[in-house]
Design a protein around this nucleic acid. Structure first.
Lengths: 205, 205
DNA sequence: ATTTATATTGAATGAACATTCAATTAATTT
DNA sequence: AAATTAATTGAATGTTCATTCAATATAAAT
């Protein structure tokens, strides 16, 4: 009996609002008051659903992960063939789609908190590992079909994401659109080289 | 006439203090009051030398650059041979020396500010480019001695730093010492592979 | 010793902050 | 309709913050 709980949807709503404020003004300026005001609720309500501001940030990191995992969502017409799937995912990673998933500014700010907060560190590690695991699985699928050569799929996936993270670390500072596209393509080529795809000619042998 | 200016040394002293506070409590918690107190001066004095807190951060970024450039300082016994120099620098980059240069937490926090502040963005871009340029020069030196094959030294240097930045992005979240060392070695090998050194056997030909 | 420029202090400002607590409102069950 | 449970509000707390301004102290030059 009693009133139905609105906990889950409310929490998600608050996290989304918190993210929006952080995106606009920076995580360090994203306050509970601003968050509450942006969705027309009382600041106390935020505190009701999140013990502290830190807990709100924990929620935000889970939200980041959900968003980033969307790079693995690809149109169903690709999904039938592992090779096409993997190539499409690489396309997603090295394209403007990456930036539409989640604001890098917020992501880096959350990341920097990991250095002084164990829980955040664990959550972020989990995030990076989740992204790697999914890519590893795609590589394994390709390998089993003979579409590529990979001695150690986990390592390959890891190196690819090292490239990705390093790439956007630099690219985020590049304003010139041409330079941006040029570099992005270079980095993508690097990643593809690493993936060691078997050429169609070789496949036919 | 009038009193001698203490501007430069005082500014540097304040920046160092600011860095120390940021290292300990996080950049977002590094206040002018705490910084001033840590070196026993009045907060107003900080404001006297830095118009705003932002200007203090600008100074901090220049300080970061100075520190990071120290990876290129190597013992003189290596300096005679480009190959040894480059290898030593790679050693420096992929070793615990990297972390002693500058606190990653502070660095990432500054970096994240680039997304909402053009000046910081430019300064950080300059920082990354400076690190790349120095490495490029080392590669060019090696190339001219025939110690390695590099079609495009600038690109090679860029890719190496993409690997470095991506590597530490992940490694900063790894607590397990063994895993850390293992991964670090893997990443270092990647970097060395990219450098395309000519083997001593080939050199003798 | 007076002038001059800079260093340094001290007090005050108002704004924003996270968090608390008690009170009220709204929905659901018996 | 009475009881119950959760949602939501409102007011208040004390702290910290960056920044300001005027006042004072100190050193160098005339």
């Amino acid at each position: 009996m009693g009133r139905k709980s609105l906990k889950e949807p409310r929490q998600k709503e608050i996290i989304k609002a918190f993210y929006k404020v952080a995106k606009k003004e920076g995580l360090e300026n994203a306050s509970i008051a601003k968050t509450a005001e942006s969705i027309g609720i009382n600041p106390s309500l935020v505190m009701h659903y999140f013990k502290t501001r830190e807990h709100l940030i924990y929620g935000l990191i889970e939200y980041i992960l959900d968003k980033y995992l969307l790079i693995y969502k690809i149109p169903s017409e690709y999904a039938a063939h592992p090779r096409d799937t993997l190539l499409k995912v690489i396309d997603n990673i090295f394209s403007s789609k990456w930036n539409t998933l989640f604001d890098d500014s917020v992501s880096y700010s959350c990341y920097s908190l990991a250095f002084r907060n164990k829980i955040i560190k664990e959550k972020y590690k989990k995030l990076l590992d989740a992204l790697r695991k999914r890519l590893e699985q795609l590589i394994v699928d390709c390998k089993s079909k003979g579409a590529l050569v990979a001695e150690d799929p986990a390592l390959t996936a890891d190196i690819i994401f090292v490239l990705v993270d390093g790439a956007y670390y630099y690219l985020s500072l590049v304003d010139d659109k041409e330079e941006y596209q040029h570099k992005l393509l270079q980095y993508k080529k690097q990643a593809l080289t690493h993936l060691n795809f078997v050429s169609s000619a070789q496949l036919r042998k």
